[in-house]
């Protein structure tokens, strides 16, 4: 197999993760399940970053830094998501996104 083909296959897997995660983030009603969809999207970014480093520019650390940033975004999203979930549930027992439409125009 040529390295270009392997790269394309890996990026296709990453695109599938992004697509599935996008579906989940848009369709789920539970706040925690929405967060799981976003995590899947970020998992796709991790995979694409790793593949880009290995096949395109392993002599540079930039793609590795991108993976590190994606990992940090995951951690921040998770921490803030749980904090918001607790806050809104404590305030008015809301655990679904459909019940928290205060900011909808």
């Amino acid at each position: 197999m040529t390295s270009e083909l392997v790269l394309q296959l890996l990026l296709t897997v990453a695109a599938a993760l992004v697509g599935v995660g996008l579906y989940g983030a848009l369709s789920q009603q539970s706040i925690v399940m929405v967060m799981m969809g976003l995590e899947l999207v970020l998992g796709g970014v991790l995979l694409a970053g790793g593949a880009a480093w290995f096949f395109l520019a392993p002599e540079l650390p930039d793609a590795q830094m991108l993976v590190v940033v994606a990992l940090v975004v995951m951690a921040v999203e998770m921490a803030m998501g749980f904090a918001v979930t607790i806050a809104i549930y404590r305030a008015r027992q809301v655990d679904m996104v459909d019940m928290a439409t205060d900011l909808s125009g």
Binding site: V13, L17, V20, G21
Partner: peptide, 9 residues
Amino acid sequence: SVASGIAVF
């Protein structure tokens, strides 16, 4: 990874 991702939902 994709199959597990689909299984989540």
